[in-house]
């Protein structure tokens, strides 16, 4: 399976990863190689097989509707690169 440069660029954009022009050939080669490995999956017929998203067939356990958390804003925001007046700051969002 080969993958072209525009696809690499599209995927990098979806994943929000900056990509240097120079990295594209190597990235293409790696991706193609991995996809070749992965495509061994197509050597068998899986018609009629249900996909398995989780190793165990168990149902979700639900939580009671209770407030258990307290305000820890100051503690959490110690890790933040930029805050003001309790808000996290980002470059202007244009809607």
């Amino acid at each position: 399976m080969s993958i072209d440069s525009s696809e690499i660029e599209k995927i990098a954009w979806l994943a929000r990863l900056s990509l240097n022009e120079d990295d594209i050939p190597a990235s293409k080669a790696d991706m193609s190689k991995i996809l070749d490995l992965v495509e061994q999956m197509n050597t068998i017929d899986t018609g009629g097989i249900e996909p398995l998203a989780h190793p165990m067939d168990i149902r979700a356990r639900l939580r009671a509707d209770e407030v258990t958390e307290t305000d820890q804003r100051a503690h959490f925001q110690k890790n933040a690169p930029a805050t003001e007046d309790g808000h996290y700051l980002v470059p202007k969002v244009i809607e």
């Binding site: 994943a15 996809l35 992965v38 899986t46």
Partner: peptide, 25 residues
């Protein structure tokens, strides 16, 4: 990159769903 690719539209069934089926096998 690989993960984004296998989940993206047009590839999901061939990769992600196929892998989940093999997982069951």
């Amino acid at each position: 990159m690989i993960g984004t690719y296998v989940l993206s539209s047009g590839y999901y069934d061939a990769y992600y769903l196929q892998a989940q089926k093999i997982r069951r096998l």
